[in-house]
Simulated scan of single mutants.
Amino acid sequence: MNGTPRSRGNPAGGRSCPCGLPAPYAECCGRFHAGQAAPTAEALMRSRFAAFAVQDEAYLLRTWHPATRPDGVAFERGMRWTELEIEAVSGGSPFHTDGTVTFRARYAYRGQPGEMHEQSRFSRHAGAWVYVDGTVG
């Protein structure tokens, strides 16, 4: 990717949010993509999954800790993120400064199903939750 932030707007339309919660995209993760701060590490995790699903590079970079943030996000052609399952959450509430979220993300890559398992670390930076890094396992 050339490093230029881009967003595809609201490809989810009025359908349920890509993060898996039973709310329309605009009322769920779309509001975070539009600028509202995620109140918890889990909400940020869900909104980042949805951002990968809708290819919102600007949001992903904005919610990545500056110490670990890449120059850009390369979206794989033929990759479609299909389902998010949160397995465990530690910390990450409105009262914490750090948190972890363990999840499974399912996808289809060129028609073949796959799954990614990760424990992600989050922290507060300038008052907002940001993704620090993750351990894929």
Rank of each mutant, 00 (worst) to 15 (best):
R8L: 15
I86L: 10
Y109Q: 09
T82V: 01
T82P: 02
A37Q: 05
N10C: 14
A26R: 13
N2Y: 02
P94Y: 00
R62A: 15
E87Y: 02
A53R: 01
E76Y: 00
R6Q: 11
F32V: 06
E85M: 09
W129K: 07
A74W: 05
A88P: 03
N2G: 11
P66A: 08
H125Y: 12
A12T: 08
C17H: 09
C28T: 07
G35A: 05
S47M: 08
E42Q: 12
T68N: 02
A58V: 02
Q55C: 05
G137F: 14
Y59D: 03
F52K: 05
V130H: 10
V89I: 15
G3K: 00
G72E: 11
T63Y: 01
E76R: 05
F75V: 00
E57R: 01
T40W: 00
S47I: 07
H117P: 04
C29T: 10
G13V: 13
E83K: 15
F103T: 03
R46M: 11
D71M: 01
H96N: 15
P94N: 00
V130N: 08
S90M: 01
T97F: 05
C17K: 09
H125T: 00
V89A: 07
F32S: 06
V89G: 09
T135P: 02
F103S: 05
C28N: 05
W64A: 04
G9A: 15
T82N: 00
F49E: 09
E83P: 01
R106E: 12
M116R: 13
F95E: 15
R104A: 13
H117S: 14
A41K: 06
L84I: 03
P18I: 03
R106L: 12
R15P: 01
A108E: 14
A41C: 08
E87R: 14
Q36C: 07
A105D: 10
F103C: 05
Q55I: 00
D71H: 02
G91Q: 07
V89D: 07
E57A: 12
Q36S: 14
M45T: 03
E85F: 04
V89F: 06
F103E: 05
